[in-house]
Design a protein around this nucleic acid. Sequence first.
DNA 1: ATTTATGCAAATATTTTGCACGGTA
DNA 2: TACCGTGCAAAATATTTGCATAAAT
Lengths: 154, 154
Amino acid sequence: MPEDPVEAVIEAAAALLRARGDRMTGPRRAVLTVLALRQSHLAPDQVVAAVAELDAGVHRASVYRALEALSDLGVVQHMHLGHGTTAYHLAAEHRHLHAACGRCGAVVDLPGDLLDDVATRLDDVQGFALDPAHVALSGTCVRCRPDQVSGDRP
Amino acid sequence: MPEDPVEAVIEAAAALLRARGDRMTGPRRAVLTVLALRQSHLAPDQVVAAVAELDAGVHRASVYRALEALSDLGVVQHMHLGHGTTAYHLAAEHRHLHAACGRCGAVVDLPGDLLDDVATRLDDVQGFALDPAHVALSGTCVRCRPDQVSGDRP
DNA sequence: ATTTATGCAAATATTTTGCACGGTA
DNA sequence: TACCGTGCAAAATATTTGCATAAAT
């Protein structure tokens, strides 16, 4: 029977960890649970907070270390959201890019192939291998745009 | 007669500042000088260091405040370089985008119109107004690419 | 003479690290 | 049993802020 999807993520990660001689632990389980349940990009601090709700005994530093370990594993990925914020998410989710609104901070999902042409061009021209999902594009979202122009309709 | 270009930048900024009732000061002058001389994107810390060489009396915090004030003015702009780094540069320079290598940290300049098509698409589809220069794209530069593959030549 | 901006120091915030102990395999 | 990862506390970083003083206009 199909298991709890969260459990499935944890089991998969556990297998990878053990294959390396590493271990599945409470904090790592908690971090994976948080990332799997809230299917979104979370700042370290948000992970810390969410993990604390789940298991108050988990120390802040362990969350950082768990995020790093799981990133090395490839199970978790991170990306950068403009203002110095790093956001973590499960690697497994379907491929898509992000853009962050500089005004309200909202993060919008973008089609995964949005930068494919650009990636090709960069490869051809500069030999630069673009990793399109590793940074969020920046700009202003729909809801914040009207505020930019004082009177854009006559 | 044509002035020192650095002086020209400072004078222009001074005019804008005074028009607001603000002032041109030592620290602001130093920050502008640094940004004008090294025509590149500098992290706050690098600006602090460069300013210190120019005028040891300028305090760290003043550099931060000067960068903020000059950004508000529009004379200075900043952008985000992946790993939580913010980089400042003069606004006047010719329009171009950046990409940062995740391995060596190198920043490469990209054509200013590289993301124009993407910007149009984002506007049409999501109403999102892209600010292409506000974040550096991420990936791996030519010089670091061979290292990715353990043995890519027989 | 005014009022802004500075220098300083302390407060904040964020992430990292050394070490002894507990938990996993 | 062996040793990896944790909790804790402190250190290292990075940035912000309150306040008296210096400086720009």
